[in-house]
């Protein structure tokens, strides 16, 4: 028998490989050369320091939204609201970045802290409604996404600018970019946020696996009746899980505001960071380390895809198909599990 740990590693790996194979078949059937396509993808993601920097930059918010969704999942909740929490975190970080004059060592942490509190507040509302009134968090978080989109657009036009479509730039003391880092990575948009994302991944792992808080959250996620029976407050844990999940996504927004862009612009629709986070969490088996690895893969696919049209003539839409196929195989991990078990049985 396979151990469950081996299973958890094998399934996403096989999913990715299957996704790449099916992607190759699709490229072939449309008359493109899949080897050229994948070489362009690889070089476009890791080919030189510039592309590596771009991949890291793209992965950073995905790690955090992945953590947000994984964390909620582990506590038995489905946080569709990471999207909205990203918006709120982004606008909060930019607001602090513009309106305070502080030394760097205080300004950056303060902006990130306020972003996490704002995202946490955006998660708290559905958590509160779920805990006290039993309203399903999926419904509320979807609605909260719309509210976040339009509230931030209003804020940008009326508070962070004078009727403009972009906010003012944040002060240099709030920026996550640094000249040395930019130069090292070939003048890409990479910023220090990647380190923050890794630290928060470590934090999530520690909180969930090593503390009594995580013990309670996971118990509530697995079986809330048993959690209640053994004296844990199910309501408090639901609210806490949503606040922490919201805070992770809020920090993802701060990464965009303080790192990638340095300002915020009005959005016509979602950033998709929150929705991609669902796929990241799924591929990462809802673990911290898994989310980090899955986010890097997604970031690499997204950044590398940009080089496929000029170098191999493959349209970017195809990369979206490859990503979709990978998610498809992860979601149908049951099939892979079944095939593996069959295979194992055949060996006996």
């Amino acid at each position: 028998m396979f151990s469950s740990r081996l299973f958890n590693i094998l399934i996403p790996v096989i999913s990715v490989v299957m996704g790449l194979i099916v992607g190759a078949i699709i490229m072939l059937s449309f008359g493109y050369n899949p080897i050229e396509g994948y070489v362009a993808l690889w070089n476009g993601a890791f080919g030189n320091m510039y592309f590596l920097g771009e991949t890291i930059r793209q992965s950073t918010p995905l790690i955090l939204t992945g953590l947000s969704i994984a964390f909620a999942f582990r506590s038995g909740l489905f946080n569709i609201g990471a999207e909205g929490q990203v918006f709120i975190g982004w606008v909060a970080a930019v607001w602090v970045g513009i309106n305070f004059d502080l030394p760097l060592v205080i300004h950056v942490p303060l902006a990130i802290l306020i972003a996490s509190l704002a995202g946490g507040f955006w998660g708290f509302i559905p958590g509160l409604l779920k805990a006290t009134r039993g309203v399903h968090e999926v419904i509320v978080t979807i609605m909260m996404n719309y509210i976040a989109l339009h509230v931030t657009n209003y804020m940008i036009r009326n508070v962070l600018s004078e009727n403009g479509d972009t906010s003012e730039r944040i002060k240099e003391t709030a920026s996550l970019r640094s000249d040395g880092l930019t130069e090292l990575f070939g003048y890409s948009q990479v910023h220090w946020g990647f380190i923050i994302a890794l630290i928060l991944a470590l934090f999530m792992w520690f909180l969930l696996e090593k503390t009594t808080i995580g013990y309670e959250l996971r118990a509530v996620g697995y079986n809330k009746h048993a959690a209640h029976y053994s004296g844990m407050s199910v309501k408090r844990n639901i609210m806490m899980a949503m606040i922490i999940a919201g805070a992770f996504a809020g920090v993802a927004g701060a990464m965009e505001g303080l790192g990638t862009f340095g300002y915020m612009y009005t959005h016509a629709s979602y950033t998709n960071l929150g929705f991609d986070g669902i796929a990241v969490a799924l591929l990462g088996a809802n673990t911290a380390i898994g989310s980090v690895l899955a986010a890097i893969l997604f970031g690499a696919l997204k950044v590398g895809a940009l080089r496929m049209p000029p170098l191999a003539g493959v349209p970017t839409e195809l990369v979206d198909i490859v990503i979709a196929v990978i998610i498809f195989f992860v979601a149908s991990s049951y099939i892979i599990r079944w095939v593996l078990l069959r295979f194992k049985k055949g060996e006996r």
């Binding site: 996971r218 697995y222 079986n223 009746h225 048993a226 209640h228 029976y229 004296g231 844990m232 407050s233």
Partner: peptide, 27 residues
């Protein structure tokens, strides 16, 4: 009193449904 307070006061409970209440099966 809350279940935790009851437990701490010296009550033990072997529940009727051991899968639903008694155990977190995935722990």
């Amino acid at each position: 009193l809350s279940p935790r307070k009851v437990t701490e006061s010296g009550v033990a409970h072997i529940p009727q449904d051991r899968h639903k209440f008694g155990l977190v099966l995935d722990y």
